[in-house]
């Protein structure tokens, strides 16, 4: 039955959605700052990270308040717990975006090491994963969530490939080492963002079904759509 405090959970959901949108925007802007060599965008990202931190605190606090005062029923409890975890993942996504932005500023002060081909590719993949994972929050779609988990492997592969490529740069031309390391870190950040997207996708499966698929063989058993 409808209760007068149902609106509180709606607020909670919309806070989480807002946080997801903000995190995606941060990553997109940070990658754009690198590719377009735009330090203004990068600074914008660094300045906006505060917003994600604040949203995480708000969501955590509201979650604790809801659990304390509203005696949540099972599905509400899952929402609240998933909200806390997802907000943590999104806050980390924001940190990675900040880190990318900071490295972009440094890299852009020097000549470009190589054309950025793979980086935008995995960045786009990671962003898509994040978007899909968050879509599952709005509309439960288990297949989509599982697909997110599966795509993580692709991101990992490209990341490893980039590592090898950058390592060979460093061996051939030691003067590129500092720039290559920055790019490696950026690649690593993007790979971490994909990991967080995977976590969120797993959390969404838990939210809709109460089933914890982390660290299980179950994901592998399900055929890819």
């Amino acid at each position: 039955m409808k209760r007068f405090f149902d609106a509180e959970l709606e607020t909670f959901r919309s806070q989480l959605i807002l946080m997801g949108e903000t995190a995606i925007e941060q990553v997109r802007t940070a990658v754009k700052a690198l590719i377009e060599a735009n330090p203004g965008l990068a600074n914008q990202v660094i300045a906006a990270d505060d917003k994600l931190d604040r949203l995480e605190v708000e969501i955590d606090d509201e979650a604790v308040r809801y659990m304390n005062l509203r005696a949540p029923i099972a599905s509400e409890l899952r929402l609240v717990i998933v909200g806390m975890k997802a907000s943590h993942d999104l806050e980390r996504v924001g940190d990675e975006a900040t880190s990318i932005a900071k490295r972009a500023i440094k890299l852009n002060a020097e000549p470009q090491l190589k054309p950025y081909i793979d980086l935008p590719r995995i960045a786009t993949m990671a962003l898509e994963m994040l978007r899909d994972a968050l879509d599952c929050f709005l509309q439960v779609d288990e297949a989509k969530a599982i697909a997110v988990c599966k795509r993580d492997a692709e991101v990992d592969n490209i990341n490893r490939q980039l590592y090898r490529e950058l390592t060979s740069f460093m061996i051939e031309k030691p003067e590129t080492i500092s720039r290559a390391i920055e790019l490696m870190f950026i690649s690593k950040s993007i790979e971490r963002i994909a990991d967080h997207a995977t976590n969120i996708a797993e959390e969404m499966i838990y939210l809709s079904q109460g089933k914890d698929v982390r660290h299980t063989e179950e994901l592998k058993k399900i055929p890819t759509a």
């Binding site: 405090f5 609106a7 607020t11 509201e62």
Partner: peptide, 11 residues
């Protein structure tokens, strides 16, 4: 107030 979560008006 900025660091405090938005509390529903009922509370």
């Amino acid at each position: 107030s900025s660091a405090v979560p938005r509390i529903p008006p009922s509370i």
